[in-house]
Nucleic acid binder design. Sequence first.
DNA 1: TAAAATAACTGACAAAAATCACAAAAAAAC
DNA 2: GTTTTTTTGTGATTTTTGTCAGTTATTTTA
Lengths: 237, 237
Amino acid sequence: MGNPINKMPCELCASRKHSMLSELSDTHICTISENKNLISHKKGQILYYEGTKPLGIFCINSGVVKVYKTASNGKEQIIHLAKSGDFLGYSALLGEENYSNSSMIIEDAKICFIPKESFLNTLFSNSSFFKRITKELSHEIGVMESKLTDANQKSIRERLAFILLQLGNTYGVEGGENQKIDLILSREEIAGMVGTATESVIRLLSEFKKDELIDLEGKKIIIKDKRGLARLSDFYA
Amino acid sequence: MGNPINKMPCELCASRKHSMLSELSDTHICTISENKNLISHKKGQILYYEGTKPLGIFCINSGVVKVYKTASNGKEQIIHLAKSGDFLGYSALLGEENYSNSSMIIEDAKICFIPKESFLNTLFSNSSFFKRITKELSHEIGVMESKLTDANQKSIRERLAFILLQLGNTYGVEGGENQKIDLILSREEIAGMVGTATESVIRLLSEFKKDELIDLEGKKIIIKDKRGLARLSDFYA
DNA sequence: TAAAATAACTGACAAAAATCACAAAAAAAC
DNA sequence: GTTTTTTTGTGATTTTTGTCAGTTATTTTA
C-alpha cells in the first residue's frame, strides 16, 4: 500500500485546522495521535475496497482521493473527492457495515490511519466530538439528497457545468479573470463524476471551450466564465 | 396541519418495536413520551417544508409519508417513502441545518411530534440511543450512495423495475404467485421516484404488463414476475 | 348525479445521450 | 528514443428519453 513515514503529532498537523479534529481538546487528540500511522500513498493506490471490513478511519493530510462505487454496468461512479482535512471511512465504521464504496489516490497523498479502537474510544468519551461527527454525517445526507436530485433531474450538460464550478471552488487557483482547476482528472473520471459516457464529456468540454466558458491546458481545465457556467448548470440561475 | 388525538404512551406503541426507539429503556422513553404529541394527518398534508427550521422530529405511527426535493426544473424528486416506525427530520436537527427536503402525507397517517429539547436531551444522556441514531445516519449515507450510482448509471427501465421490486418488498401483500403493492401512488409520483417523465412511467408500466411482469389493478400494481423484474433491473442479476 | 377538474394514456416527433468505429495525440514501457 | 499502450478526440448512427398535443378515464366538487 505505502510506507510509514513518521509520527508527526496531530497537535501540529496543519490539516487539522479545517478538519473535524479541530474541536478536539489537546488531551483527547493525543490518544489519537499516539495510535495513528502516517502513510505515504502514490497515485493509483487503493486505500480500501467496497465490501471489506473497516478497521479504522483515514485522515487525509495531503493529496486527493476519489471515493467511488463500481456500478452494475462496470462503470465507476465517483461519489466525491476527498482532500486535506477530510476523513474517510467513518460512516462504514459507525454504521457497523462493510465499506459501501472504494477509494483510490488520484494525487500523491499522505494519509493517517487511526485504528477503530482509538477513534471510537475518543468519540464515545468526548461528546462534543461525537456531536461534531454526527453533524457531519447529517450534513452529508443533505448533500447526497442534492446530488441524487441533480442526477435524476438535470441534463448531462447541466451536471458537467455544475461539477466544473465545484471543482473550481475546491481546487481552483485564481489567475486574473480565470480560475485554473489544479487537479488532474482523466476524461473518464470526469465522466464518472457526472455519470455519463467519456465521449459525452469530451464533446461537451470542447463545446464549452468553443463557447468560451472554459479553456483546456493539457489535462487541466481553466474556467473563464463562471457566470456562464452557472447559468448553464441550472435552469433558474 | 392536523388534530391532536390522544397521548398514547410510547411504551405501548406498536410501531416502537421496529423503530430506533426499540433500544431505549423505559425510563428514557418516558421523557419522550410525556412531551410528544400525536397528530392525525390526511393525505396531501405537508409535514414540513424544505428550507424551514426543524423544531423537533417526527415519528410515524401509521400511514405513509413521501420525502422529496423540488428540483430546479420544478419537478419533484422523491428521496424516499417513510412508514410506521420511521423517524423524520432528525438529520436536519443533528446537522443543525434547515430541512433539506419537504415531506407530504400520501396515506392517512398518525404521527408523533417530539420536540427538539426532549429528543436531544434523551439522545445526549443516553449513549446507546445516540449510537443507534448515528448508526442509522451512517447507514442512510450508504443507501444514498447506491441510489446516486443507480441514478447515474442505470436506464429508466432498470430503475423502474428496481423501484417496483422495492415497493413490493416494503408494501407488498402476498397473494398466491403474486405480490400486490398495497400503496396508492400516482404515475407522477412514481416518475418522481425514478427520476423521469410521467409519460415514460406510463409507457414502461404498460410494457411491463405486456411482458407479463406486472398487472395493473386500478392504481395498484401487482408484481407477477419478481425474477423477471430483477433481471431487468440489473445488468448482472 | 352532472359538470368540472385532474390523472392516465397514446402517438408523433424532437432532443439528448450512448454506442461504435476509428484516428490522433500523449503517456508509459522497454 | 523508439515502440507500445493508453487516452483523447471526432464522426456517424442508434437508442433512449423527453416533449407536445390530444383523447379517454377517473375523481372531485358543486
